[in-house]
Nucleic acid binder design. Structure first.
Lengths: 232, 232
DNA sequence: TAAAAAAAATGTAATATTTCACTTTCTATA
DNA sequence: TATAGAAAGTGAAATATTACATTTTTTTTA
């Protein structure tokens, strides 16, 4: 019990900001806390499933996930990649309550399942809290729009350069990292064939822009990568 | 004065739902009303400009607009097309207050400029209202995601078929309509070259799927168009 | 740890898309 | 209503991308 509390409070970002005493009182916090469950997810497991009713959000405490959409023809698309700490599923709640995409672990994860009904009840009685949720959803919207824009006017090498920079800066926070997406998943993120991803990564490698050995990537020339991402 | 009120109240969709007495009291409504201005926009005029601070939203009462993003290399992209009645600009407010895209009239429009600060003040004191705004933003998020998905895994003919159906169903609400986008704008919406748009429309015409004479379009074979939009 | 399965890599042919240079057709307005 | 400028349309070459067939490498698991 105590361990659970400490866990929530020790993660310094999103949820803390939102749930902390600034926006929510002790009593509301207890309600939310009592209705939440902590769960482990193995790589590949689905945290939120596309098409299902949104009964909960997930506050991810450790691990990384992908936001993926699968269409009826079997094709798959990765919209976003996110790492702990983060609140997942926020965009679904206040619309019609059906998950528009899945959220899947791309490495072992741990997270709190937060009851949506409870959350709504609290938001209705606390507009500061509701506003914070609005900020959260707007932020996601913005990210999605930027990703969309990039997809629309950039060619594959520009997209790949951009995604490499994004992963390096935002997700792994290092110029050296071990990718936890397969080449196929990477292709689903870029929006092209897996062969194209493989060839382009190889080309970047041969041009000395990156160094890639299997899943291990080192970004050698950020300047050039930047240029490609802008021009491409 | 009376005319203005009637105008707001007679449009049956978004704003009414949100602003109506169910969610906002007489006094708040007056505040919002007093800080709002009605304006006319000519085709091509910008209602909200990308990069500028969000000082107002627009409640569009008549006309049609495009949501367009322009990048520094001069390329332009249309994210969405929307017609009255609609609330425009909602996604910007609660994030960092900078418009992430422009909203431009594609035909003569009329709309109310609603002061954002006033709106925020009211939302802070009225969580029902805040929740309604959340729904609005979530809805836009959802639309954007679907458009994004379509762009990512469909080829140009699939995209064009889809956009034709979208325009027919959602925007013009008829199988016969007069497009108020140029071929170039249509291409910016599809995310391809204008020649590709022209050729594809011609091909659809020759195959008897649509009938196109300049800007006048008749959808002849919805079934086939549907198929192309799904397979493509 | 060996075998099976999955993922990565490669080269080439087929296809899709853009770019370019140009003509034709509209449309606004002087 | 003549005319300039914009928009639409065309065809062909250049480029980008995918699809396919196949091999190599890595990972999983019996």
């Amino acid at each position: 019990m105590i361990e659970k509390d400490e866990n929530i409070l020790s993660s310094e970002k999103n949820l803390l900001k939102i749930i902390s005493s600034q926006y929510i009182n002790e009593e509301d916090f207890e309600k939310l806390y009592d209705s939440s469950v902590i769960l482990q997810f193995k790589k590949g497991e689905v945290l939120l499933k596309q098409g299902m009713k949104t009964t909960h959000l997930v506050f991810l405490t450790t691990g990384m996930v992908k936001f993926n959409y699968h269409d009826n023809s079997g094709k798959n698309l990765i919209l976003m990649v996110s790492k702990a700490p983060a609140i997942l599923g926020g965009a679904n709640i206040f619309y019609d309550g059906i998950n528009i995409f899945s959220i899947t672990a791309i490495e072992d994860c741990e997270g709190y399942l937060i009851d949506v009904e409870q959350l709504k009840t609290i938001a209705l009685n606390n507009s500061n809290f509701a506003m914070k949720l609005l900020e959260l959803v707007s932020g996601m919207f913005k990210d999605s729009v930027f990703n969309f824009i990039s997809l629309a006017h950039k060619q594959v090498n520009g997209r790949i350069a951009e995604i490499l920079l994004y992963l390096s800066r935002t997700i792994y926070e290092s110029e050296t990292f071990t990718l936890n997406l397969s080449r196929l998943e990477f292709a689903e993120f870029v929006g092209c064939s897996k062969e194209n991803v493989i060839n382009t990564l190889r080309k970047f490698h041969n041009d000395g822009i990156i160094e890639i050995t299997g899943k291990h990537i080192v970004i050698k020339d950020t300047g050039k990568l930047n240029k490609i991402s802008k021009v491409g």
